[in-house]
């Protein structure tokens, strides 16, 4: 069981959360001509590192806020968590 520290609610167990994927992916800017390649990168391409990974989690059975988590994908150690709109 992972224990994730929600920046709003404190330490909670993993099954209160749902996963939201790679948190470093940036959507192409709005109201701008975006080449296909940029969309392709945003929608499909992922680094999927072994080691530190910044990811989004949704505290869906808690405060319902999205948060950012920095976790090791090999050991599952959680280094840091933050609000989704903050830099981690």
């Amino acid at each position: 069981m992972l224990h994730i520290k929600c920046p709003h609610c404190g330490l909670r167990s993993q099954n209160e959360f749902s996963y939201g994927g790679d948190g470093t992916v940036k959507r192409p800017e709005l109201n701008k001509e975006v080449p296909d390649k940029e969309w392709d990168t945003f929608v499909y391409l992922r680094k999927s590192p072994r080691g530190k990974h910044i990811e989004l989690w949704h505290h869906i059975s808690g405060c319902r806020q999205w948060i950012k988590v920095e976790r090791d994908t090999a050991t599952h150690e959680i280094f840091k968590t933050s609000k989704a709109n903050e830099d981690i």
């Binding site: 992922r46 072994r50 994908t73």
Partner: peptide, 18 residues
């Protein structure tokens, strides 16, 4: 499951996650 690790050595980013 180790594809992304080797792809990283080749500077390739792939549409997969492990």
């Amino acid at each position: 499951g180790s594809t992304s690790i080797l792809a990283d050595m080749l500077n390739i980013t792939l549409p997969i996650e492990t």
